[in-house]
């Protein structure tokens, strides 16, 4: 799949990532007790963001997953561990590709990206740490849908 983020264009195997997450989605989402709140709300979505700011917003959300979600999600189940590793290493690959756009000055961080990411972060930090990790991981299908709609 080719993701078009303003003038930053990258390719990724979105289908593979979606199928990997689908293997653990139900068990992860079952752990989420905060069903009335949402971290990745529709108004903050990537596809409803100015194209020029999409790359920057994506980079920040990817980093949120890498640095605070995958890193802190606790499981002793080897199968889940392997799926989380697969997702994390795939996200790392995407982040590396976006870094190339950043180097080529096609990953501008404007006001909209900062504003939307700020809201995502405040939603994340309103919850207890582990609850935020579980909810954000459970919302990965929302995030992947965002990516799907920019492709």
């Amino acid at each position: 799949k080719t993701l078009r983020l303003g003038s930053c264009v990258i390719s990724t195997n979105l289908q593979k990532i979606q199928s990997t997450f689908s293997e653990i989605r139900d068990s992860v989402q079952a752990e989420d007790r905060n069903i009335d709140t949402r971290i990745l709300s529709k108004s903050l979505s990537l596809q409803d963001t100015e194209p020029s700011d999409q790359c920057c917003l994506l980079r920040r959300v990817l980093r949120l997953y890498l640095e605070r979600v995958f890193k802190n999600y606790q499981t002793s189940d080897p199968h889940t561990l392997r799926k989380i590793s697969s997702l994390a290493n795939s996200f790392l690959t995407i982040l590396k590709d976006l870094r190339l756009c950043h180097d080529r000055k096609t990953c501008h961080c404007g006001e909209e990206a900062a504003e939307k990411y700020g809201q995502i972060l405040s939603h994340f930090e309103e919850l207890a740490p582990q609850a935020a990790v579980v909810k954000t991981l459970g919302e990965l299908d929302i995030f992947l849908q965002w990516l799907e709609e920019t492709s």
């Binding site: 890193k71 080897p78 561990l81 392997r82 590793s85 994390a88 290493n89």
Partner: peptide, 15 residues
């Protein structure tokens, strides 16, 4: 251990 683990979770090894 993938590159992610070696960067963020260097103690973690996956069966």
């Amino acid at each position: 251990q993938g590159e992610y683990e070696s960067l963020y979770l260097s103690h973690m090894w996956i069966p």
